[in-house]
């Protein structure tokens, strides 16, 4: 049902090209896969594609875009999707993802991930657009939950009910961004655990982990900082609930040395190992107890 998991990855950033590619092939950085920002490579030539081709020779790659505008009432941009499809061929992308939002209207692009009203009408509309997009690309796509700062009065359900319904109706997969759940839970005052409990585990393909900026009354999803403890704790809760999920650190600004981000990736691996270990012990205890009673 899901794509095969890839392990623990990083978002590919140009600041790290040399660190990644200059190491001898037997001492490559211990990163299982890279997520590339689709739009950065929808260019004709030059450095971006030169480095990308070399990364693709060494690592599995997935594509993460910001321009599908799947929630917009504008028609599907087939020119954009053709370029995405072509890049997916070039990179051998294991999967393609974008966001549950709209980024523009009437041909104007706001270059932001703008939230949608959570209504039955939106679910039908967006699910239909996802289906058309999947048909065009010839594969299932992953849709990511976004951080948001507003709730529309029209919304008649929780965010997790909304994302679940869209993913079921369109038969798409989920890129569950743990930081975005944390941010939106704070901004809108919901329980992030309820969110994790509310989404279909068999559709969760990938996690993002990222940093944010905390203000007194709200959090902005800035991706310019380390992952905070609250997000690590929420990640551990996600590990308990979902299997075969590929996890990565998403850093977009204030980019540190590769070695710094690798420490965060190690943190994710450690949390995963410890949490899975504990939960398997619990499962073992439960099974042995039930065996005793038989």
């Amino acid at each position: 049902m899901k794509y095969s998991p890839l392990g623990f990855g990083l978002g590919l950033r140009k600041e790290h090209y040399h660190d990644i590619l200059d190491s001898p092939s037997d001492k490559q950085p211990d990163i299982d896969w890279f997520e590339i920002l689709t739009e950065n490579y929808l260019v004709e030539g030059g450095k971006p594609l030169y480095f990308l081709d070399q990364i693709c020779e060494r690592y599995p790659v997935v594509m993460h875009g910001v321009s599908m505008s799947i929630g917009s009432t504008d028609p599907i941009d087939t020119n954009y999707l053709s370029q995405v499809k072509q890049l997916a061929g070039r990179t051998n992308a294991h999967w393609i993802s974008d966001h549950l939002c709209f980024t523009g209207l009437d041909g104007v692009n706001a270059h932001d991930l703008l939230p949608l009203p959570y209504t039955e009408e939106t679910i039908k509309f967006v699910a239909n657009k996802i289906k058309q997009t999947q048909d065009f690309l010839g594969r299932r796509i992953l849709i990511e939950n976004v951080s948001s700062y507003i709730t529309y009065k029209q919304s008649g359900m929780t965010e997790w009910e909304f994302v679940t319904a869209i993913s079921e109706e369109s038969d798409s997969l989920m890129l569950l961004d743990i930081n975005n759940i944390f941010v939106s839970a704070f901004n809108h005052g919901f329980d992030p655990i309820e969110y994790l409990d509310g989404v279909p585990a068999h559709r969760v393909q990938q996690h993002h982990l990222a940093g944010h900026t905390q203000y007194d009354d709200y959090i902005i999803d800035t991706h310019d900082n380390n992952v905070v403890d609250g997000v690590w704790n929420l990640y551990a809760e996600a590990v308990k609930r979902f299997d075969d999920v590929s996890t990565m650190i998403e850093r977009d600004d204030n980019i540190p040395e590769l070695s710094e981000i690798m420490k965060e990736l190690q943190m994710a691996r450690d949390i995963y190992a410890v949490t899975k270990d504990k939960s398997s012990q619990v499962t073992n205890q439960i099974t042995s107890k039930s065996n005793d009673s038989v």
Binding site: L42, V43, G104, G107, V108, N109, H111
Partner: peptide, 9 residues
Amino acid sequence: FPSQHFSLR
């Protein structure tokens, strides 16, 4: 000149 293209490029 609001952005008319999918890429900020």
